[in-house]
Nucleic acid binder design. Structure first.
Lengths: 245, 245
DNA sequence: AAGTGGTCTAGACCACGAA
DNA sequence: TCGTGGTCTAGACCACTTA
């Protein structure tokens, strides 16, 4: 029964919950690895995998020779993963509505074709939406998708809550990485009328390429009203040592 | 002799080099794990650790039952790690100069004290610099540091190339994580005169908290001319499954 | 059914930090 | 020196994909 999930995940989740419930306080040391072995009755490999996950999520800090320190998990959480814009807003407690402004089939502009490493003569689905949080306009979002990946997209698009959720549930497409290119601009007249802001107001521009298994599967362009939303990103340790050959 | 570095790192670096040298082409499969075991004469654990690293760096994509696919490493590289602004510019081939505009000891503004979870009555070192790339102004950078961590900072600050490099070499401070809060604004008159741009020009605002071992050690605020620099970020897979208890 | 990656064990020895 | 985490082995069995 319990056997559906791997043991290291069970250990990970148990320890994580204890940290979140303050059974371990920030600054405390986690029990040592041999001790955890006994407590959970698993091998050291399994313990280490669980603790490594906790470290990746920012719950603990591992130090050779010293022990594993519990961190203040509220400060360094949940920022390092692929999420959609609307999901992030919802997590922050906003009521999010996405109004579809346009749904077309177009040949992508050269700049986008180049970023996706495609020819540009291939048709793509272009979805333009206005994002409102608590009924206030926040952003214009434009998504480009490959028609072959999303059959009958038009029917589904108009009633979806989140594009990523739709991709996962209806099309079984799971995005596992993304690259964001972040810039800034001032509002031009088209944006002004859609977002109902003054001309010249600052906008955050985010261009995102989403990947599954190393293949680009989506391009998105967000024009965000800077005064109403802030983008946050958590970056982690440097890559492993380079060797000189 | 060779024993200074762990074997999994050696395997990792060897495979990585082969991918970068196109010994394995994008789309190819990496040899299977048992095969790599034989080739490198190490255990499966060691092979798996090396391949896992490659996957984390975006060189390969691992699929259970199917194999490990080599990716186009140029498209998804080197974006997920902590780096300094000036280091990034240098990597892109610019000649970077940082002019120190001011070096003061101040009590941090409430907003910054709050982000760092400190009282605000504690003094901090405030360093204000103008960043030029190929002699063109790019950004204003303001750093707040704890005086206790950087004794004799004034002498070192004026001649450093990169703040992070100085922290590492002189003070043995290694930043291992950072959170960026990214926003946009339009240039006010103070910025206008320093950066020599028109009033109202779009700026990217990046506020960064840097951590070592879960403790905040630095706060930085960048005002970047949006037309001259773009910020990029790579995010990865979602966290492990949550369990319901 | 065969081959791939995923989980797990029991045990060994090494490297680092603190007392 | 002792206790911590870091590396590594040889082997077992499981889960997924493809044929």
């Amino acid at each position: 029964m319990t056997s559906k999930i791997p043991r290291y995940l069970w250990v990970y989740n148990t320890l994580k919950k204890q940290i979140e419930d303050f059974k371990f306080m920030a600054g405390d040391r986690l029990p040592s690895e041999p001790e955890l072995e006994k407590q959970y009755n698993v091998s050291r490999t399994t313990i280490r995998k669980a603790v490594e996950l906790l470290a990746n999520q920012g719950y603990v800090h591992i130090q050779q020779g010293r022990g594993t320190k519990v961190l203040d998990f509220k400060t360094t959480q949940k920022l390092q993963y692929v999420t959609s814009f609307s999901e992030t807003l919802r997590e922050q407690g906003f009521e999010v509505v996405q109004n579809v402004l346009a749904l077309e089939t177009v040949k992508p502009p050269d700049s986008i074709a180049e970023m996706l490493s495609i020819s540009g003569s291939e048709d793509m689905v272009k979805l333009t939406r206005l994002t409102l949080a608590n009924e206030v306009p926040i952003a214009i979002m434009i998504n480009y998708l490959f028609p072959g990946m999303v059959p009958d997209f038009e029917q589904n698009a108009r009633e979806m809550e989140s594009l990523y959720l739709l991709l996962e549930t209806k099309y079984n497409i799971f995005i596992d990485a993304a690259t964001d290119f972040i810039s800034a601009a001032t509002a031009d007249s088209e944006i002004v009328s859609l977002l109902k802001i003054e001309k010249g107001a600052p906008l955050l521009i985010v261009r995102r390429i989403s990947y599954r298994g190393g293949e680009p599967i989506e391009f998105a362009e967000l024009h965000i009203i800077a005064e109403r939303y802030e983008y946050s990103v958590h970056t982690k340790e440097r890559p492993p040592k380079e060797l000189k050959f």
